[in-house]
Design a protein around this nucleic acid. Sequence first.
DNA 1: TATAAATGAAACCATTTGGTTTCAAATTTA
DNA 2: TAAATTTGAAACCAAATGGTTTCATTTATA
Lengths: 107, 107
Amino acid sequence: MIMNVPRRDVFQAIADPTRREIINLLAYQSLNLNAVVDNFEMSRPAVAKHIRILTECGLLIIKQKGREKHIRADLKKLKQVSDWTAKYQQFWSDKLDALGDFLDQDK
Amino acid sequence: MIMNVPRRDVFQAIADPTRREIINLLAYQSLNLNAVVDNFEMSRPAVAKHIRILTECGLLIIKQKGREKHIRADLKKLKQVSDWTAKYQQFWSDKLDALGDFLDQDK
DNA sequence: TATAAATGAAACCATTTGGTTTCAAATTTA
DNA sequence: TAAATTTGAAACCAAATGGTTTCATTTATA
């Protein structure tokens, strides 16, 4: 019986600004843990926890290389977020007639 | 001096599944608070708090109508999320040669 | 082989989050 | 006007979150 495995999802993973920075940092390069830590002002365990969360929900890939782990982003899962926002794209791409009517209805 | 005003941002707002449901519910219709509550299994104050968070970060618009508040989504701010994910779109739309090389490099 | 480097893991902590119940206030309606 | 409806707000709570320090373990190097 699986227990205490917090059900990570992508929306929650990218909610934290540090994790979004990590994603950006590792999108096009592979770094080991300490190299990632060097980019932040927090402790190594704190960064490591963020990396674990991102890994658990499939946004990072880790390859062990001796005592180092080479970490890199694999951002296919972000399509979930992209697809969700796409449903509402007309809110910023159209003239929004329906919303306009709603906002004007108390004139 | 402004205090205790949690700096809401859109990424955090949409991290909660209930709030994403509220957004979906109010994207194309306006409902008052109790009508929104009817769609969920939690208490009215709980839903009201979610609505306040969404309103504070600009994803909902509320118009007071007597004792009722008519609530509707205005999702232009989701463009922030859309733009952010768009930066990584090649991860799910391309062949991902670079990532493939990374994954294959230990052969 | 002794030391340094890279990482893991545990224990702990303060704050935030997401929910509850209860009560008050304002607006409608019978 | 009395009662019902709609909402707000406060107090409270458990769990999750995001961080810390400390120590252990594994691997590489001088």
